[in-house]
Amino acid sequence: MAQKKKFLYVNRKAPYGTIYALEALEVVLIGAAFEQDVSLAFLDDGVFQLMAGQDTAAASMKNFSRTFKALGDYDVRKFYVERESLAERGLTVEDLMPITYEDEAEDYAEKPSIIPVSRAEMAALIAQQDVVLSF
């Protein structure tokens, strides 16, 4: 591909109550094949998409949270999570699933994909993008 663009996927909605989170993830999966510079942003209720211990069995819905853990294999490794959004909801980074990728530059060492950022840092991240997809 001629040029690499910076793609940001903005996730502001909780999973399951609406389909946006699931179908956003489907875009991220397909988008990974295009080898662009991909970042995911989780803010507002979007942080609930990354909660540890999601169990959808009784709700009879597809638990897609595990898919986030597989994204590292598709070179999707930048999960920016807004600290203020977590705090407003009584959450900390420890409440989220551990999500890692293998860094081939460092002998496949496991590294965290989740990058906690402040609201100001999230604003700066948005300002660097070429394409911003909101769901």
Binding site: M1, V27, I30, G31, F34, Q36, V131, V132, L133, S134
Partner: peptide
């Protein structure tokens, strides 16, 4: 869905 990503790559602006 590749058509969505491709549009994002090819266009000067994308509006949702």
């Amino acid at each position: 869905l590749g058509q969505l990503i491709e549009a994002g790559i090819e266009a000067d602006r994308l509006v949702v």
